[in-house]
Computed example of a mutant assay.
Amino acid sequence: MFPRKTHQNVQSALESQAAVVLLGPRQVGKTTLALDIASARPSVYLDLEREADRQILSEPDLYLDEQVGKLVILDEVQQMPGLFKSLRGQIDRRRREGFRTGQFLLLGSASNVLLQQSAESLAGRVRYIEMPPLQLAEVGSDHMNTLWLRGGFPDSFLAESDQASMDWRLDFLRTYLERDIPALGPRIPATTLRRFWTMLAHVQGGLLNAAALAEGLGVSGQTIGRYLDLLVDLMLVRRLQPWHENVGKRLVKSPKVYVRDSGVVHALLGLGRTESLLGHPVVGGSWEGFCIEALLAAAPAGTEPYFYRTSAGAELDLVLRLPAGDIWAIEIKRTTAPKVSRGFHTSAEDIKANRKLLVYAGQQDVPVAKDIRALPLDQATRVLSEF
C-alpha cells in the first residue's frame, strides 16, 4: 500500500469531526484506505452495494445504537440516501453521550449526489475530503513517466506490463459505462457515452464547445451538458472555470475540460505505450492535464483553480487562488527549454499574481525572469504543498 496523503487527511479529520465523507472515483483506493484505518481501532464496515449489508440497515437506529464507540464505515453510501437523517440523529445523540469525534466514515463515488444528500442532514457535522488517484509525491519522481502513461488508479499503475495496464483501464471504462453509471439512474446508451468521453479525450484541455460535441453525437446542446455534468459528478472529468474577475479586458467565458486521469485519456485514445503517446497530437493536452491534477492535489484545502484567457489570446494554463488570498500564475509546457511568452507576463499582471511559475519537463530549478522560476513538476508540487 502506498503512503497516501489522503490517509493523513482522513485521520486528522476523524480526530476533530464526528463524520468524514471520503469522495473519489471507483477503484481509486478508498476502501483500502478505510480498512487500513479500521484495522487500528474498533470498527465495523458495511458495503451498501451488497443487498445483505443494506438489509442490516433496514432499521438503521437499531443497528447503529449497538455500534456506539466504534468507527462505522459505510461504503458507497449514496446507495441509501435516506440514511443521512438517521446519521444526523446518531451523531447528535452520541455527542450528548460524550462521543464527539471519529464516529462515521462515509465513502462515495458520486460527489454532487452525495453532497446534496448529506448537506441537508449533516451540515456542521461532517468534513468532505476528496481522494485523487495516486500522485507523483506518493509514487516518487522516478516513476513520473509511468504514472503519466498509465494514470494513477493503483491497479493500472502497478500492472506488470503496459499491456496489462491498458487491459485494466479498458475493463474499468466498460464497467463504468455498462454497470456503474446505469446504477445511478441515467439511461444513456453505453456506446453514446463512450463516444462522448472519447471526444473529450481528443480535445483534452480545450475550451468546451458544446455545439461541436452535440453535432458530433447527433444530440442537443442540453444533452451534452447533462452528459458532462454526469462525468464531472463522478470525478472523472474536470471542468476548469475561467478567471472571472473584471480586469478591464474581454475574457473567454467557456470552461476548459479535462479527463482527470491521464491513463483514462490514453485508454480512450488507444495509446498504450509511451512511444505512441509522444507521437500523438494529444500529448500536450495530456501533459497539461496530468500536471494540473498533480498541482491541485498538492494545493492547500480550499484552493480555487481557474485558467485565464483573453479574447486577444493572452493565456495562463492555471490560476490558483490560495486560501490565504495569494494568487499563483502557472504556465505548463512539455519542453526542456524553459521560457514564457509575452502573453504570460501580461496575463500575470492582469490578475495581479503573487507567484509566477513555469512547470516544465526539465530536471532543474531555473530562473526564467526576475520573478519567474521554471520548476520540474515534482518540485512545483512540493513548493505548493508547503503553503
Rank of each mutant, 00 (worst) to 15 (best):
V340Q: 02
R239W: 03
D155Q: 15
M235D: 00
L35W: 00
W287E: 00
T346A: 13
L134V: 00
Q204D: 07
L231H: 03
V247P: 14
S141T: 06
R239H: 03
A110S: 10
E315M: 15
P132S: 01
L170E: 10
S121Y: 09
D142Y: 03
A13V: 06
D47C: 07
G313R: 08
A301Q: 15
G302E: 05
D155P: 05
L277N: 04
Q8R: 13
P338W: 09
A301P: 15
R88T: 00
T274E: 07
V113E: 02
Y306C: 09
P242F: 11
S276K: 08
G289M: 06
A214M: 04
Y308W: 07
V283K: 11
Q79I: 02
L177I: 07
V366Y: 07
R342Q: 14
A52R: 14
A361G: 08
R342D: 09
R342A: 15
D180V: 12
L230V: 04
F104M: 05
L375A: 10
A374D: 00
E138Y: 09
T346H: 12
G270P: 13
S141K: 11
P338Y: 06
G285F: 15
A214W: 07
T6R: 04
A314Q: 14
A52P: 08
G152L: 15
G206S: 15
R260S: 15
P182G: 00
D53S: 08
T223V: 12
R342C: 01
S286Q: 10
D180E: 15
L87G: 08
R194N: 05
E97V: 02
G29N: 09
M199Y: 03
E293V: 02
W243Q: 11
L200G: 04
V264L: 15
G272L: 01
V383M: 09
A337F: 11
F344E: 03
V219W: 13
D162E: 14
Q204K: 11
D53P: 13
S86P: 10
Q163V: 13
E160A: 15
L14Y: 04
R4G: 08
G24F: 15
L320C: 11
Y306L: 04
C291N: 07
V264M: 13
I73E: 02
V359Y: 06
H202S: 09
L295T: 03
I224E: 07
P186V: 00
I91S: 06
K70C: 08
K333D: 04
L200H: 04
I91W: 08
L269F: 12
Q116N: 12
I332A: 00
R321Y: 10
W197P: 05
D53F: 06
D233L: 10
N246V: 05
E130Q: 12
V139G: 07
Y63T: 10
R309P: 13
I188V: 12
K352P: 01
P186A: 00
W197I: 01
E245D: 12
F344S: 07
L158D: 12
L296R: 10
M144Q: 14
G185C: 05
L114E: 01
V113T: 08
D171T: 03
L234I: 03
